[in-house]
Amino acid sequence: MTWRRQANAVFRICWFNGFLGLVRSPLVFVALFLTPLSFLFFLYVVAPRAELPFGVVGGVLFSCLFTGSGMMNDCAYLRLERQLQQVFITSPLRPISWVLGMALSELTFTIPALVLFLGVLTLVISISIGAFFALLGVIILTWLLASSLGFLLSTFFRTLREIWPIGMVIFTTLSVLPPVFYPLAAVPASFRWVAYLAPSTFASQLAVRAAGLPAASVPSVPALGSIPAELLGLVGLAVLFTGVAMRFARWREP
């Protein structure tokens, strides 16, 4: 099958799994807004007003990271419960097209929340066109990173029962514990480097800088807290995760 047909297949999967799935299950729509909005509301109530923009940027990134959790759940569900992954990959469709189609579906689920958070962001801070595109770049890299991780993990599950606890551990560690919803400055200076153990910190710091918010330094490893290091980190991790997912994802049971 030609690359054009593969690309068409990717968009077909995104259409029927993502778009039609969203419009025919409005509850998914609500569920996707609920968690980041709850965090945002919580921050609005308890945090100083100056930190609210961090919460909004956090909402944007949380939505992107959530695509990884969705990817893991949906891919495992379609493989284990519906056996549809087997139906689709035993065809001229390349496995990478299946993954990309699924990842775009997850992005489709996230787009309404992203639009909302980006809209709120423009209300709480002024954001230039350049900054907007920089933020968009961070969003795309974070989506790629989270989707690759989600897909890779999905291929290792043997039952749907295993997904919930593992998904909670991984995606909570990625999206709630690191400085996604709060500024890195809230972490004691000597421990800030620890936050960079989570790939989401690279994304959050880049997003914070793109939004024009004050970024914290990393006194113990000064090179970490810079745009080139964070960009290199995020791009490198996104490429690494995608490569690992393509190389080690189990298309065939051992």
Binding site: R24, Q83, Q86, V87, F88, S91
Partner: peptide, 25 residues
Amino acid sequence: VPQEGKPFYHLTPREHVEEYLQVRG
């Protein structure tokens, strides 16, 4: 046709057939 496979819950039979054929090229 995998043993005990199931279709997408939100798609119609027509959509299943048409979309699958288009995904196959």
